[in-house]
Amino acid sequence: MENTTVIETNGLTKRYGNGVLAVDSVEMSVRRGEVYGFLGPNGAGKTTTLRMLVGLIRPTSGMATVAGHAPGDPAGLAKIGSLVEAPGFYPYLSGRENLKVVADFAGIGHKRVPEVLDIVELTSRAGRKFGTYSTGMKQRLGVAAALLKDPELLILDEPTNGLDPQGMAEMRKLIKDIGQGNRTVLLSSHLLAEVEQICDRVGVISGGKLVTQSTVQELLGEEGVLVRAQPADRAYELLTGMFGPAAVSRQDGSIRLKTDPAGSVEINSRLVAAGIGVSELRPIERSLEEAFFQLTGEKQGS
């Protein structure tokens, strides 16, 4: 267990001083080596959960184990790199000097400073004062600071916030690269495409409750194939013969098959050989967006 689970929470709950129940009995587990996406709409409790995991705030009840230690334990913090909400640095110091300060606090040398600046492509602006940075540059410096410890566990709260499209693409690639091997990444986001592209597993939080936790594949639902053919009855008969009645259903003029879309060519040639005209044949995909709206009860486009 210890070796496979990096983050484990048990009934983790936070009620802020103003009475807001921000996180409600969250049971979350993040496994070693995976890139875990923490999804949820604004105000769902993502940041609050991450704050508890790094020991910035105390849970009202419940507990968590992070990198083998209680949150906030120096021994655990030594293995965790994090960026929770907006990056916080000293405005009167340069980006490079800020990283040196952080490295000093982390008790590591300054050797990593130029390396991480290079990784986030900030080397050319590293000499400028943090106070003069643009939002995207601040964000990059935040990620650079999170990478300083070469951490076993990287916790990033909406890391692509404020980045331009190219910066976003680079950041995603970076996170994917970092997530290779034994390193674990916990990434919060409300950008579904982002999560779909880089995460192995996801947890969806809504109204403070973790509504689901699964692989991206599971969340997207089973694969299938949609067929529209004439005459429809004969097509239905033939397909039922091929896949069995349980895998075939009819829905407003089309036929849905629970099968691997890779078999589409085969399906098409069988139908055509039987003299059935095929007007449409395509894989059915539930987008992550659909799944997300269904789970969080939010209306699409509102």
């Binding site: 020991g55 910035l56 906030g72 994090s82 907006a86 916080g88 008790g107």
Partner: peptide
């Protein structure tokens, strides 16, 4: 500045900070 957060998530405990 939000720097307390950055500092507290590095290695030393709050009191040694």
């Amino acid at each position: 500045w939000g720097t307390l957060k950055t500092v507290f998530t590095q290695r030393p405990g709050r009191l040694s900070t």
